[in-house]
């Protein structure tokens, strides 16, 4: 298994943000991480990225504990995008991409910036300050930054939140297209169920720090007797059942 999460737990004093979760992600698959606000999705992503120290449990990458890799070596294989994390606003788009390209140690930096910018259609605002861009433009720049190092593992936290349907669809189509052309494993946290159905090979449902169900979208919909993933999600998160 490419990524394996074992009994991962994060406690803040007595509050359990993530409670003994287990899941695996196969190489080059896209897995959706679903759950209501505060269910532990971002904390889980934070632990995988090394931003949050787990209280207990382990994360394995290629059967090796993630802690056994040097910090820079492991982070070279990852990248992350979220509308809640921004790039320096006073720097132009190209300056931001240059800085992150350098931080990721790219040798063919100009070529990479050129390629990714053409794909994401951001060249026409290359020389504008990032803080002056619209949400949709910022989102695409953020996505460009997250793909600059051609990561093996891409973590996306609500990548289309606050985007209009047109731009949202552009981003989803781009992720789909990028995945078809590149070897990348994606963990996608989202509240957009149609997005998850469209992009994910399987989903993990979380509630109150626990995994309450997982499987392919089709299997989960069928298992819970609902018509679509949104209804399944609502049933699971509103259920009083203890999992």
């Amino acid at each position: 298994m490419f990524i394996e999460i074992k009994q991962l737990t994060k406690a803040y004093n007595k509050y359990l943000a993530v409670n003994k979760i287990d899941f695996q992600i196969e190489k080059n698959k896209t897995v959706g991480l679903l759950g209501p606000n505060g269910c532990g999705k971002t904390t889980t992503i934070g632990m995988i990225l090394g931003l949050v120290t787990p209280s207990s449990g382990e994360i394995f990458l290629d059967n090796k504990n993630i802690n056994s890799f040097p910090r820079d070596q492991i982070l070279n294989r990852f990248n992350f995008a979220s509308p809640y994390v921004e790039l320096p606003k006073k720097l132009t788009v190209i300056q931001n991409l240059e800085i992150y390209g350098r931080l990721y140690g790219l040798n063919n930096l100009n070529q990479r910036i050129n390629d990714i910018s053409s794909d994401l259609d951001i060249k026409n605002f290359f020389y504008r300050k990032t803080g002056e861009l619209s949400s949709g433009q910022k989102n695409r720049v953020s996505l460009a930054k997250s793909l600059i190092n051609q990561p093996e593992i891409l973590l996306l936290d609500e990548p289309t939140a606050s985007l209009d349907p047109d731009i949202g669809d552009f981003v989803r189509s781009y992720i789909q297209e990028y995945k078809s052309k590149n070897k990348v494993t994606i963990l996608l946290a989202s509240h957009n169920m149609s997005e998850v159905e469209r992009l994910c090979d399987s989903v993990i449902m979380m509630r109150s720090g626990k995994i309450i169900d997982k499987g392919t979208c089709k299997d989960l919909i069928k298992k819970h007797g609902r018509n679509n993933l949104e209804e399944t999600f609502l049933k699971l998160v509103r259920s009083k059942d203890e999992f």
């Binding site: 990225l49 090394g50 931003l51 910090r71 820079d72 070596q73 492991i74 982070l75 070279n76 990852f78 990248n79 992350f80 979220s82 809640y84 994390v85 921004e86 790039l87 320096p88 606003k89 006073k90 992150y100 931080l103 990721y104 140690g105 803080g131 930054k145």
Partner: peptide
């Protein structure tokens, strides 16, 4: 502080740069 104000903090700390 610039990193905090620009909300770039997470990007910086997930980049492969050592402390």
């Amino acid at each position: 502080l610039e990193e905090i104000w620009s909300r770039n903090f997470t990007n910086l700390f997930i980049a492969p740069i050592r402390i």
